[in-house]
Design a protein around this nucleic acid. Sequence first.
DNA 1: GAGGAATTGATTTTT
DNA 2: TCAATTCCTC
Length: 758
Amino acid sequence: MDDPFSLDDPEPGPVPEVLPPWLDALNPEQRLAVTTTEGPVLVLSGAGTGKTRVLTCRLAYLLATRPVRPWRILAVTFTNKAAREMRERAAALIGPDAEQVWLGTFHALGVRLLRRHGERVGLRPGFTILDTDDQVRLLKQIMEVENLDLKRWQPAVAMSLIQRWKDRGLCFDALPADAPGRDFAAGRLPDLYRQYQERLLVVNAVDFGDLLLHGLTLFTKHPDVLAEVGGQFQYILVDEYQDTNVAQYLWLRLLARAHGNLCCVGDDDQSIYSWRGAAVGNILRFEQDFPGATVVRLERNYRSTSTILAAASGLIGHNKARMGKDLRAADETRDPGAPITVWGVWDGAEEARRVVEEAEALQRAGEPLNSMAILVRVGFQTREFEERLIVSGTPYRVIGGPRFYERQEIRDALAYLRLAAQPDDSLAFERVVNTPRRGLGPTTIQILNRVARLERISLPEAARRVVETDELRPAARRSLRAFLEDLSRWRALADGLDPAALCGTILDESGYVDMWRADKAPDAEGRVENLKELVGALKEFDSLIGFLEHVSLVMDNEARAAEDALTLMTLHGAKGLEFDTVFLPGWEEELFPHRRALEENGVEGLEEERRLAYVGLTRARRRVFISFAGSRRVFADWRSCLPSRFLDELPPEVVETDTARGLVGSGAQGLSNAPGGWGRVGGPGTVSGEGGIRRPSPGWSAPPTRPTPASAFKAGDRVSHESFGLGTVREVSGDRLDIAFDTAGPRKVMAAFVTLAR
DNA sequence: GAGGAATTGATTTTT
DNA sequence: TCAATTCCTC
């Protein structure tokens, strides 16, 4: 991509006298946000109010009308995808000039900065960027060498705590006493953090947090770097400001200090990433931090029907910590639209069936599948829907599932490539040294790791030394030597060969592909295919380094939006998207709001869950279907569920319920606006205040006995009855069954009290 | 050290 | 449930 630091700085063209026509299409508030080009601007934007449009127009406006030189604008987005889209939209407005902007994520900017000044924080050229997997493995290594009890010191837990510190812009030597997890494992965590950081420098690597943290160190300890970068960008635009973490916030404050031309666009009601370090406080504090800021509120919603807006506003109104926006339909004369439909169903399977049936009905009525989405709280919820969609033959795509570059075989292959590019990549070395099997198991690795830690050298370097000694058994030594020779041969090849050919050669010579070809596991074939795809992807790059950087930053795979398909994704993944029809399944206590959100963060956690629900509702243009199940299978057994408290918080007048008989309250009484609301499933649930955890009352934990229609039985079926035991159906008449019970004799019973025996 | 069997234990959300 | 460890034998 473009390099913000290599200035090709021609004079800007003349300022056009006529304002661009696309400004006319904006409403007054949007226009104010676009054209206020002096000083800080905070755009408080509700859902569906044209936030991205405003940002894009502002970008185009700056380029088209201000005497701003190329490459003097920094636009920061939350994802690479958002950056791509914004560039395309801006190009549609002003043409190729849109290229002359530095547009990307904070992390991508961090990489550029470290490429340029990394040596000032102890990095060497060609440093690697670790992903979560590598980070945890590195930490695990340290713990092993330090003889820390791995049972209690779970590396992944320790790692997430360290990352949280980093998100808050905290270096290990500056941890305040109230840093989260500070007392974890008897205060050894700061110590671990220090060792981890030292080790990162030895292996010449950074993690995601470091991309920002090293940047802060550079800016604060090296004024010339700040002057260079801060002077570079005359205008800074930030999208999704509510999701910036503290480290990013500090970046912005430092970079915008000289001129204050900072424009942040965000919606405090859509802040859903606090668990990743995002601080809503950033947006609440904006006016204090940047005095004289112009604050623009965008409240005209162009997306949803007034019914959906009423539901969303009613829900989010239950949050206390918010700046308060009043979302209303841009066109109030428009049809208010269909009510929010709430389905109560017996279990997950029925929920999936119902959602898919509705989607198919809509499709038959002429709605494209592309305009519908199922938005779930947690990733694994997609499975039940996928199964159903496969059965019904409905095309669908899952967004945000296991990503291509995160697959095991791809990561292994990448590790080989990294070793070819960077001979001292310890993590890559450890990953593939015994894959395929070379007889270099845990014992050998342990020896190498010990040497590496003691000598403060990388793992491959340690291997090169150890192979010259007789520390290893002869077989292992021979094998390791052969592997090292392979590595240096590939490294030599790396200079001459193009990346795709190199990758093919390495995968071939290392025996890696053969390993999968010989594997008889059902998914082995697919893995070989994936490896081929990787080689294909490499063809688009002419340097290995460039490709590896692309992989570590751009982990999102291209969504193939070509065919008409139903979208299946998490609520988090849906941020910024919109659909005509949105299905929101799984609105049950403990799942949504998620139990852990409440346990860990109490009321704050609850409010974030509520914001997530708000995001879900406001994705819809025309129709929303919410559903909850009376019970769900969790692992092996059944668990009964209470409907989500969020259902109670929807204004009753915009909701239409359709709940299975006997599921909620008693029969037809089970309406959402009945006294006591949804909480009456199977008797009173216990509620321990706002932010507390609701649990079904004891006694409701029996497996569901879902009434089975009599038509599901036929003569000769073996069935089971709670009081009469096993029996054989003799005849079906109406909703009654004539059954010959093994012990209780012949009886006629209601079909609802009988289940099929196996 | 490899390979299969048995056991366990985990499920927010992700740049 | 299912994947990922650990255990157990060769």
